[in-house]
Design a protein around this nucleic acid. Structure first.
Length: 681
RNA sequence: GCGCUCGUAGCUCAAUCGGAUAGAGCAACGGAUUUCUAAUCCGUAGGUUACAGGUUCAAGUCCUGUCGGGCGUACCA
């Protein structure tokens, strides 16, 4: 049930003839922020009054007079300048709960028109270890895919992995020159990652050495500019001019500081090489490594047999590594078509765009010049190689041919905004005008120091170790809580089920988790859930600061809180030995007598609204907020309203019904976000 | 330089395309457990929504300017 939609339809009838733009007016119906203003409010009377030169309250009265909502609402009230406040009838709410109860989908309707969505997310680079940043694209994309599917849309998920880039030149070069065969046999991915980092370091070293004099030169220039500025500042008497000069001075100073930071960082990287004689020797032995790496890449792209064979050897191994993380995160893809998949299409695409006049040559390269853009989007380099944009255009062609989508969503870092703007504009020039192309962007993950994680520096928080840590922390809490629950008599047996060792009073830390034990599974769901929720609940386009404690928190607005609400319901059912089948078959509507019961009922019925609102701007955090509020409401209800000990059987059943609906909504909602529930915690 | 973007409580973030008294969580302080899981609940405190103008019945939200942060700016992805 979407109450908002229902009210909109009722208002649309009443507004017919009162305005030219009924759909717009009807958009001004929304949930009230304050209970005293009712459950929903309609705000169109003010603007309509203005349009028609009538007092808004009179317009509101006119609308109310034509409005037929008597079956679902109490008599609407007009308040303030012309707000129409609506309070839903409690009996009607109870009736709607019965509808939801009898529906597998909890009364959530399907989209009016099922559309086909291609969602392009996660997209890690093969052979580069995944880091914290990848969780954003992966989990937001996963949640959107699940939400859209739930609404009845046809969703195709495609992991557009980076499997054709220059990192393979590095790995191939590393493999040919620095391979540790034993390490490769034992842990191929680890060894490839090491080779990548090592070659990268050597390439950077030579580049940095070459760049260093330029930095120094720049520092000298800045110094000279500052001196000149100071001189003119002393001669300047006009206050306004002085202010301007001081501003310029602080700007220059900032540049100096930034430059010093850069120099310091570069110097440290150089020193790291110098400090290790073996590395230094290899660095000196390979002065042209930058060019050599590019050559390896180029050979691969031109079908060199040896390099292609190596590529074919590396990719599956690396993919297995990535898949392991997806399994832990409960993420799957319909397709994994990487950049390499489109390789054959690129030359023809560029030729075609040239012929159509969409692209033209510039400075030996080929680019698309777009109105309002001072720089072109390059699709072929001077050396004939293709770029990111070329692959993206080829991919869109393939997807349209193959899937006939209504929309394609790209989940990437917001820093790629300009690229997508240009890429989408080019796609429109190519004739894809009816296709929704959306860059679902998100902010950068920053380190605790407020600076962005840099993949090149190498020392980012690896995703895998983060998952491990999440599970470990959750395990500590779960273990302690489980034991104390048994001691307090909440449960008769431990989740661990490891009863033989029970006599020796165990120290949670000294006992490693039994593999496959229930406790371990619970810890996994709670730990990973916390991690995923931390990301989804903060889906803003701005950056966010990565913090272990924040990401792995299990108090407050966290997945744990929602899972806890769910587990508490299950606990009631277990304690009361509740016959769920009978409860769900009963056709006796709930009695919503306490204010908290009524509020809880209303919250339950807003599930569809939350999903719809979430998808309007592709923001899973709307769903997390909704679920948090529902869990919060349930916690209050739990405190205020005894269920098993209710005063009589009808109230008991009524409350059990509310509990069941909360649990089902919680489970479904979390599932749509890619988070699992636990029966007991 | 140009372009995009952000600035909300000590911290991390909300605020449903302009709606009524700007809300949560964390941290702080004070309470609640013989009663269905205290991973909880209830309460207190914390704000001139960076600043200055403007638009109107109504501005955190829209416009202009200022200050401050982030990002991007043709052969990376």
């Amino acid at each position: 049930m979407n109450i908002q939609t229902e009210l909109k339809q009722r208002f649309a009838k009443a507004l017919h003839g009162l305005t030219d733009d009924v759909p717009n007016a009807v958009e001004m119906i929304r949930p009230s922020q304050e209970p005293k203003f009712g459950d929903y409010q309609a705000n169109m009377a003010m603007s309509l009054g203005k349009q028609r030169g009538k007092p808004p309250r009179d317009v509101a009265a006119e609308i109310v007079g034509r409005l037929d909502v008597s079956d679902i609402c109490e008599t609407p009230e007009i308040a303030g300048p012309g707000f129409i406040n609506l309070r839903l009838k409690t009996d009607w709410l109870a009736g709607q709960l019965m509808v939801a109860k009898n529906d597998e989908r909890l009364g959530v309707g399907l989209a009016a028109r099922a559309k086909t969505y291609v969602i392009d997310y996660s997209s890690p680079n093969v052979a580069k270890p995944m880091h914290v940043g990848h969780i954003r694209s992966t989990m937001i994309g996963n949640a959107l895919a699940r939400l859209l599917r739930f609404c009845g849309h046809n969703v195709i998920t495609d992991n557009h992995i980076g499997d054709w880039g220059t990192q393979f030149g590095m790995i191939i070069f590393g493999y040919k020159h620095f391979l540790d065969r034993e390490a490769y046999a034992a842990d191929p991915v680890g060894e490839l990652a090491r080779l990548y980092r090592f070659v990268r370091m050597l390439v950077d070293y030579h580049r940095d050495l070459a760049e260093m004099p330029k930095y120094e030169q720049r520092a000298v220039e800045l110094r000279e500019k500052l001196d000149a500025l100071n001189a003119s500042l002393q001669n300047e008497t006009d206050a306004a001019a002085q202010k301007k000069l001081r501003k310029e001075e602080s700007r220059l100073n900032a540049q100096v500081l930034e430059l010093l930071d850069t120099i310091k960082a570069v110097a440290e990287k150089i020193r790291a090489v110098h400090d290790d004689p073996a590395t230094l020797a290899l660095a000196k032995a390979n002065p042209d490594i930058g060019r050599a790496v590019l050559e390896e890449t180029s050979k691969l792209h031109h079908g060199d047999r040896e390099n292609l064979a190596l590529w074919n050897e590396f990719v599956p191994v690396c993919m297995e590594d990535i898949e392991r993380i997806y399994r832990r995160l409960n993420v799957t893809f319909d397709y994994t078509l990487g950049e390499s998949y489109y390789n054959d299409r690129l030359p023809g695409l560029v030729e075609r765009l040239l012929k159509q006049g969409i692209a033209r040559e510039t400075d030996g390269a080929v680019g698309v010049f777009l109105p309002g853009q001072d720089i072109p989007m390059l699709i072929r380099k001077q050396d004939g190689a293709f770029l990111y944009a070329t692959t993206d255009l080829a991919t869109i062609e393939y997807r349209v041919e193959t899937f006939r989508p209504d929309a394609i969503l790209y989940l990437t870092d917001f820093r790629q905004g300009l690229h997508f703007e240009q890429f989408f504009a080019t796609a429109r020039l190519m004739g894809y005008t009816d296709l929704e192309l959306t860059h679902v962007k998100f902010g950068t993950v920053l380190g605790e120091d407020g600076k962005p994680f840099k993949t090149r520096s190498g020392d980012t928080v690896g995703l895998e170790s983060l998952l491990d840590e999440a599970e470990r922390r959750a395990y500590e809490v779960v273990k302690i809580n489980d034991r104390s629950s048994v001691e307090c008599g909440v449960w008769s047996v431990e989740l661990d089920g490891d009863n033989e060792n029970k006599s020796q009073i165990p120290n949670p830390k000294s006992q490693p988790p039994t593999p496959n034990s229930k406790l371990r599974e619970t810890a996994k769901r709670i730990g990973i859930g916390a991690l995923v929720y931390a990301d989804l609940s903060q889906n803003r386009e701005s950056d966010y600061v990565f913090s272990y404690d924040k990401m792995l928190a299990m108090n407050g607005n966290t997945a744990t809180y929602l899972q806890y609400a769910y587990a508490r319901v299950q606990s009631i059912f277990a304690r009361g030995e509740v016959d769920l089948d009978a409860l769900r078959k009963s056709e006796v509507p709930p009695r919503l007598e306490q204010p908290i019961e009524r509020t809880l009922a209303l919250d339950l019925l807003k599930f569809e609204e939350a999903i719809e609102l979430s998808l309007r701007d592709y923001r899973p955090n709307v769903v997390t907020s909704y679920l948090f509020e529902l869990a919060n409401r349930y916690a209050s209800f739990f405190e205020q309203c005894p269920v098993l000990r209710a005063e009589d059987a009808t109230i008991r059943d009524s409350r059990l019904l509310l509990c069941d609906l909360v649990a089902r909504t919680m489970q479904r909602g979390l599932e749509l976000l890619g988070i699992e529930t636990v029966e007991r915690m």
